[in-house]
Each structure stands twice: as C-alpha cells, then as structure tokens.
C-alpha cells in the first residue's frame, strides 16, 4: 500500500537583498552537483524528503522582494503551508518588513500557515544591527519559530527547513483531528465513488490547488 505523501508549499518572503535566493540556492545544492540542478532552481525548488519513514514533498517558492513587486505577494503565498520570512541581521529595517509580512500572512492565511522568522547573514555578526532577543521575543509572540542562518557559510539552513517541516506536520495533524471531531461519523456518507479527489483534499494539504 502506498504511504501518504505530505505535500507542503513553502514560500520565502522578506525585503530585497536579505538573502532569500541565496538560502534557496544553498538548500538546492548537493555536493555531487556541479552543474544546473533542474531548470528553474533559483526561483522554484522541489525537494523530496523521507523523515523516519514519512514522505514529505516540499515545493519551495522564492519570491520577488523588491518594493515594486510587493503587490504580487498574495499570488505567490496563497495556499502555502509554511512561510520563511527572512531578515538581514545587519539591517534594522528588514525586521520591520518582517513584521508587516507576518501581519499580512496572518490576515490572509490565518493560523494554518506555519511561520519561521530567519535572521540571515550571521557571518556578519560584527555589523549586527538587530537585537537577537528582541527578534526572538517577537517571533514567539506571533507564534513563529525563530532561526539564524548564514547562506554564505551554509550554516543553519538545513536545520531551519527540518524544524519548519516538523511544525507543518504537527499543524497538519491538528487540522485533521479537528476535522474528524467536527464532522464525526457522517463524514464517510457523502463520499462520491467516482473520484476520490475530495476525500484526498481533506486529509492531505495540496500545494497544487488552484483556488
């Protein structure tokens, strides 16, 4: 019998130049690979993982960070299961931007989306302009994880993704439980035989949904 695949869509957000693209590129890398991985890897990355027997399929979407593209954000982040909101530890303003993204995401996607706030460029510790404690307090206040990375030195990135996956799996279970208790026994009744799509969509989040 086929094991279920957990399909997660993860989107990277944050001010321009904080290192979103660099983080994706780092994560896409594997040391065997010295040519182009797939076709559009810098903007989009598909990653399959198997975590202690659980199959996870990550679709990672990088977004355009410049101000002129800000309005297009919702097109990219809609129906995401997770969002990585990046700031640059040497740039105070980038944390301000993080806060406005968090607000927007919570408003548009509610609590179903798992958030991780990432302070990037830890290799530039000497130029730090963002207070770590302040960032961490803020993150826990809004129910987000906080993580520090350096895309340059490849530090913390894989761990950050793993924690996020963990959180998304947990969130998925909570949502399922909720649905089961809410719908109770009559859940099975309305299942149409022809196409098991509907059943599937309820139990599995689908990053591919168009709506």
């Amino acid at each position: 019998m086929a094991t279920t695949v957990h399909n997660f869509k993860v989107v990277l957000l944050g001010k321009g130049c904080v290192g979103k693209t660099s983080i994706v590129l780092r994560y896409a890398e594997d040391k065997f690979n010295n040519d182009h991985l797939s076709t559009i890897q810098a903007s989009f990355l598909n990653k399959k993982l198997n975590i202690d027997g659980k199959r996870v399929n990550l679709a990672i979407w990088d977004t355009a960070g410049q101000e002129q593209f800000h309005a297009l954000g919702p097109l990219y982040y809609r129906s995401s299961n997770g969002a990585i909101i990046v700031y640059d530890i040497t740039d105070e303003d980038s944390l301000v931007k993080v806060k406005s993204w968090v607000k927007e995401l919570r408003k548009m996607l509610g609590s179903d989306v798992s958030l991780v706030i990432v302070g990037n460029k830890t290799d530039l510790e000497k130029d730090r302009h963002v207070n770590l404690e302040e960032a961490e307090t803020y993150a826990s206040k809004v129910g987000a994880l906080h993580w520090q990375t350096s895309a340059k030195r490849n530090e913390g990135i894989e761990e950050m993704f793993l924690t996020l996956i963990d959180k998304m799996l947990q969130r998925e279970r909570e949502i399922e439980d909720l649905q089961v208790t809410r719908q109770g026994s009559n859940h099975r009744k309305n299942v149409v035989v022809v196409d098991d799509e509907q059943v599937e969509n309820q139990t599995k989040s689908c990053c591919g949904s168009n709506t």
Binding site: K9, S43, F44, N46, A59, L72, L75, Y76, C207, G208
Partner: peptide
Amino acid sequence: NFNSETNFLITTLEA
C-alpha cells in the same frame, strides 16, 4: 494533478 512546478509557472504568468 499538475505538479508544483506547473503551478509555479502558471502563477508566474498570472504575476
């Protein structure tokens, strides 16, 4: 059942 890459392409067109 398009894969997620396809969805990304369509979203890029929309954007």
